[in-house]
Amino acid sequence: MIRLRDVSLKPAGVGQPVLHGMTLSIPQGEFRWLLGPSGAGKSSLLRLLTLGARPASGQMDILGTSVTGASRGALRNLRRRIGFVPQDYRLIGEWTVFDNVALPLRLRGRSEREIRQEVFSVLEWLDVAAYAHSRPTILSGGEQQRVAIARALIGRPDILLADEPTNALEESQARRLLSTFQELIDLGTTVIVATHNESLVREAPAQSIMLRDGTLDPQAVAP
C-alpha cells in the first residue's frame, strides 16, 4: 500500500519544490503506469517512493509505515522490501554481476547456498547467467538493464518500481518483463513503471499516474 497526502519534495539547494500537492493511493498488489513528459517529476516521485529522499511536507505511508517520521532503522527495513530498476541501472562496476544481484539477499542474511541458487535462477531467466562472474561494465546497455532487473526482482519485493525498464530491451524481452510484472502482481506486489513507451502502455492497459509540472494531472489519473 502506498499513500501520499499533499506531499512535496524539495531537494536541498533547489528553490522550488520539484513535486508538490501529491495525493495518491495505490492498494497493495496493483499496477500503475507512471507517465508524463520529461521534467514532469517522474524520477523525483520514484526517488521519493524508493526512499531516496524524505518529503518536505505532507504525509507519506509505505507498506503501513509513515515515512515522514520513521527512524533510520525503519527506513532501512522498508528499503529491503522495495525493488527498483533505475534508468541508469546503478550497478556497482567494481563488483561482479553475481555480487550485484546477490546484494539484496545478502543484506537479508540469507545463506550463500540459497543466494547462489536464486541468483543463477534469475540470471538464467533473464539470459545473463553467462556474465555472472564478469563485471557489469563490460556488458551492453541491454544486458546491464537485465542485471538491474534481476537485482530488483531477486528479493521478491513488496513494491517494485521501474524507471524506463524496457528502453534497452528487445521487444520480446520487454514482453517477458511485462508478464513477469503480472506474475508479481498476482503474488501481491505493487508495481509502478515509469515509461515513455506508448506501445508498451497500449499493450498492457492499466491505471496511470500522469504527472505534469511536478504535480498530478487530475484528468489522467484514471484511464
Partner: peptide, 16 residues
Amino acid sequence: KRAVDIVHSLGAADLT
C-alpha cells in the same frame, strides 16, 4: 559515493 549510495538504497545498515 555511488557504490555507497546504491548499497544504502538497497537497505544496508549504516554500521554494515
